[in-house]
């Protein structure tokens, strides 16, 4: 067990290094930030000075080494736009993103898994067909479109929910979050529903097909021959086998959700790190882009790691001896 963890941690570190290299290489070819910092028609000496100040005159491998060394200390430089520490800006906005991601994840799990299970258990029922149609539609909808439709309908047309922005922040269980206030909740509903839709549809489909596949297995038939009533076969035998792979799905979905916050936050003007990323891309603010990618990479790698470990615990077939 211990060796397994160590092995995975080692791979984790390797992956992060690879990502850092790629990020560094790519951002170093993204436009020349020097021109953003100096006045128009600045004299060559000024340009030289700024270039040296930013450390851009050193050879690439050296720049990379400095980059890594700084990164490990959490120093990604200062934003070109507002001269504040890049990582700090991202971390500051992380809680807002986390709010919608968590709510979206909960929504899709609480609705998606039961729907998928029931629809997979009774595949010919009307409920199942409706769920199927909905889930195919769900993965066909562009998430930005969903957001726009929801805004138009609930905010502009009906006027029951706010158009954009994050609600008032309060304290819940010692954490400062907008989920602590009713106003906060009214603001979070639309963005998290928009975010949840794709994941919801995916979870329904996977749970459903998992259930159907498991119902065809031999052990299900054997259980029936023991006299186990149909319902128990479905929810006692097939279900547990179906839910085990769902854990890995969740891990992957968290990654996708974080990726899609870029769009959701843009549409709803939600002050999270997704919106920060898009703004930074448009203004070629390299430090923030680099910091974001690596921050998010660490999160993904970490999530995958947790999921792997979790899997070992919940699937009895995995024997690490």
């Amino acid at each position: 067990m211990f060796r397994f963890i160590v092995k995975r941690l080692f791979q984790l570190v390797l992956v992060l290094f690879a990502v850092s290299l790629i990020v560094f290489l790519f951002t170093s070819v993204m436009g020349n930030p020097v021109y953003l910092m100096v006045k128009e028609n600045a004299p060559a000496a000024d340009i030289q000075a700024v270039t040296a100040a930013l450390g851009l005159d050193k050879p690439l491998p050296v720049q990379y080494a400095i980059f890594v060394k700084n990164a490990l200390q959490g120093n990604f430089g200062k934003s070109y736009m507002n001269h504040l520490p890049a990582l700090g800006l991202i971390v500051e906005r992380f809680p807002a993103t986390l709010e919608i991601v968590v709510v979206a994840l909960l929504l899709s799990a609480l609705i998606g898994i039961p729907c998928g299970v029931v629809s997979g258990a009774y595949p010919k029922s009307r409920f199942s067909r409706a769920v199927m149609a909905f889930s195919i539609a769900g993965i066909s909808m562009p998430s930005f479109w969903v957001g726009m439709v929801l805004i138009y309908f609930f905010s502009l047309h009906l006027g029951v929910l706010p158009v954009s922005g994050r609600g008032t922040v309060g304290t819940l269980l010692g954490i400062r979050t907008s989920l602590a206030t009713l106003n906060g909740w009214s603001h979070i509903v639309l963005p998290s529903v928009t975010l949840a839709l794709g994941t919801l549809a995916t979870i329904i489909r996977l749970t459903r097909s998992g259930m159907q596949e498991n119902m065809k297995q031999d052990y299900v038939r054997f259980a029936k021959s023991k006299g186990v009533p149909r319902r128990t076969v479905l929810f006692g035998h097939a279900l547990k086998n179906t839910l085990i792979p769902v854990v890995t799905i969740f891990g992957m979905q968290m990654g996708t959700l974080i990726a899609f916050t870029t769009i959701t936050e843009t549409i709803f003007a939600w002050p999270g790190m997704g919106k920060l990323l898009i703004d930074s891309i448009n203004s070629l603010d390299r430090p923030i882009i680099a910091a974001y990618i690596l921050f998010v990479a660490v999160i993904f790698v970490f999530i995958n790691f947790i999921v792997d470990i979790l899997y070992v615990f919940i699937d009895p077939r995995i024997d690490l001896q």
Binding site: Y219, F222, S225, K226, G227, N241, I244, D315, P316, R317
Partner: peptide, 29 residues
Amino acid sequence: SEREVDRLRGKEISMIFQDPMTSLNPVYT
């Protein structure tokens, strides 16, 4: 009825399947 057959199975008449590798549910002891 379905219920009566369930009571019959296992109790009065039981079955042994062909492939022992797949007859048992892998996630239960």
